[in-house]
Design a protein around this nucleic acid. Structure first.
Lengths: 117, 117
DNA sequence: CAAACATGTGAGCAACTGTTCAATTGAAAG
DNA sequence: CTTTCAATTGAACAGTTGCTCACATGTTTG
């Protein structure tokens, strides 16, 4: 037996209508959530912070974060898929860099948020 | 057998040192990730978007998002724990509202990001 | 008081996530 | 060509997440 959605008063129904009117469409909301989800992992945040300073190869990132390059590579794959980082091959190495100013802004605002600045 | 962290060249070690120097401390990075993780769910993004428009009770949110009030309540609990929303009791009902301007900024930037504005 | 109702909460469960491990690819060096 | 090494990839596995369901709490109303 599923729980029924409750009945609301007339006043609140107006508020609901107002909120619904200003709500972005579902696809947009899901994309927003997916963007945040991508930033919602310590490893990926560290990668982005590092790449905000300088271009680095997978190997460098692995050394910096003290993780296996496999783990880093898996995360870079996700960031690449979203167009957040770009890469450039140089021999055996692959250098990664940030490729999205919005994301950098997001991280900065968030940093400001947690450090109460 | 764990995979060894690779040896990097001198040049890249300097870059790593540079990146490490500018890297916020680990606690801060984890908190940033946790903030983003909290925003990284469609249900919670919808709740925040709705509350950005107007104060709403759990019941209203459940009706607006077409979900059970239990599910909404679980999510509000997380948002409350992070101080992102505040609430006010009025009889049986509990009205929720946004309580964090940074978060609203984050959602706005992200909306701008996904809509290419 | 009892009934009705909005909300909160804990257990359980299916789906997802991040890492490890093993194997592969591709480029540089012997 | 063979070896070496950076990077990638897929499978597997443990840990996490978001929802449902059942129940508890607290408030209003009869």
């Amino acid at each position: 037996m599923t729980q029924d959605i409750c009945q609301v008063t007339i006043i609140n129904q107006q508020r609901i209508a107002q909120a619904r009117k200003q709500m972005p469409d579902d696809t947009t909301l899901v994309e927003i959530a997916e963007t945040f989800k991508l930033l919602g992992d310590p490893t990926r945040v560290k990668i982005l912070q590092a790449l905000a300073v300088t271009e680095l190869c997978v190997c460098d990132l692995a050394a910096l974060l003290e993780m296996t390059s496999s783990a880093i590579s898996h995360q870079l794959r996700l960031l690449r898929a979203r167009g957040i980082v770009r890469f450039r091959k140089q021999g055996k190495m692959v250098y990664y860099a940030l490729d999205d100013s919005h994301v950098q802004t997001l991280v900065e605002v968030s940093l400001c948020h947690v450090t109460e600045c």
